[in-house]
Design a protein around this nucleic acid. Structure first.
Lengths: 248, 248
DNA sequence: TGCTATACTTGATTTAAATCAAGGTGACTG
DNA sequence: CAGTCACCTTGATTTAAATCAAGTATAGCA
């Protein structure tokens, strides 16, 4: 439904992983300088999606996985009943579609949260290449296992933690991902709506809103709309850890 | 703490994937008959663990992943505070440890729920082999992506579904996994305690117990301790609504 | 520029499941 | 074979977050 004006080159340009500023976060980080050409050979670079456009759709044939170059993406699964579950947010340098690797159809839908550019890796070519470059294969396994761990972490959050703990954890996760990219870890703009946060964390929007105000009143964060400033990171970490202690 | 009497051969026997009754569920299913020897070369077969013994421990160096041969395994992550989150149950033919593939340390602890025998695949050897056998590599990617999907399904269950829906979904998942093994899909013995079910599904034990009795009173199941009989599978599917398919 | 839709916030009430509390069942053990 | 322990069930009460119900801001657009 949001497949309208998709901007991209008619013949996609060969990517230039060599010059990419994300080469220390993305797939190139696993590859020797002189093997990088082989990755460039299979990448299609620079497709740009507008806010709300779909990068791929659940239940359509898998062709590629995608690295975020700029912007951000949310993935979600839709049930038969039309209910949505947000399964992840992806920022520059991160790989989207690992849950569909080597599957027939995409397991989720990926949607641009803002104007977003991606690099596309055709799965068949990627598999072929990882068969030849053991370090790349190793890295793929690593990324996929990380993805499983992330998802287990989310399950843990959902089943054991309070609304405040979940939101604190999300803010800290975003913070550290901004830091990885050498951006401010305390002062950033949320790429997603409250609604998406709520859905992702298994909460009602109202609850998310309330927790944001509560954190603000406690002087832990400052938030106006999507602009967020973490005023007291330690306090946020305390919020997420307080829970861990209840166990004993 | 449960590392006591571990029974295994001093020099592990070479596995016989050729003769294994699970070869159509386990890794061999992705391999040509004449390449099967190469898998057998790297497998260490037949370690047996007693109920409660650990197959591997969270935060210890990753050596191998494991296929369940008989019995069953639960995996869980433990927080700093000692709180446990059960992340999965594994039955014969299923692969344990994918969340730790190509990581430094195990991301979870794997524990035998009953007397359980496993086949061990050293990760380095497995990586080497998948580099040579494209179908095996493909299958590994597939299994890992399935694992991500399963975990997303779990997250969905935890964040959107009621206690009844979660338990119905688990029962149906177990049912279909028994069927895959050509065992009764309606009459089986739960390998795990109510406590583990509760933990896995993000519920209190009391709630699990209550739902079991409720289902029983409604004539949907019959349960005596761990013995379960599904009397009305359709009703169970109705309970789960959109959430029908879990496991594989 | 105002209009509409979407996003966000706040308050009151309800509810599903947790927690608290107690007892039952069965299995292994000294 | 009684005793202990781990596991399971049932009932009463509490609670965190959902839902219901208005609002207010904000952005996009004609």
């Amino acid at each position: 439904m949001a497949q309208a004006i998709r901007l991209h080159q008619v013949s996609p340009l060969k990517a230039s992983c060599h010059q990419c500023s994300l080469s220390n976060l993305c797939l190139p980080l696993a590859i020797e300088e002189n093997d990088l050409d082989r990755l460039e050979d299979i990448v299609q670079q620079g497709k740009i999606y507008n806010r709300g456009e779909h990068i791929f759709d659940q239940s359509t044939p898998v062709r590629s996985c995608f690295a975020v170059k700029s912007g951000s993406i949310k993935t979600s699964i839709i049930t038969e009943g039309g209910e949505e579950q947000v399964t992840g947010f992806f920022m520059p340098g991160e790989l989207v579609g690992l849950d569909s690797m080597s599957s027939e159809n995409y397991a989720c839908t990926a949607k641009a949260l803002e104007r977003t550019s991606v690099c596309e890796f055709p799965v068949d070519k990627l598999e072929e290449l990882t068969g030849k470059l053991p370090e790349l294969q190793h890295h793929m396994y690593h990324l996929m296992s990380q993805e499983i761990q992330n998802s287990h972490q989310l399950a843990m959050l959902l089943s054991k933690n309070t609304a405040e703990e979940r939101i604190a954890a999300l803010l800290l996760s975003l913070s550290s991902r901004f830091r990885r990219r050498r951006m401010s870890a305390t002062n950033f703009s949320l790429p997603m709506a409250r609604n998406d946060i709520a859905n992702f964390l298994g909460l009602a929007v109202e609850t998310v809103s309330r927790v944001f105000t509560r954190f603000q009143n406690q002087g832990i964060i400052r938030a106006r709309g999507r602009e967020v400033e973490l005023l007291d990171v330690e306090a946020l970490q305390m919020v997420t850890r307080d829970f861990a202690r209840q166990g004993q």
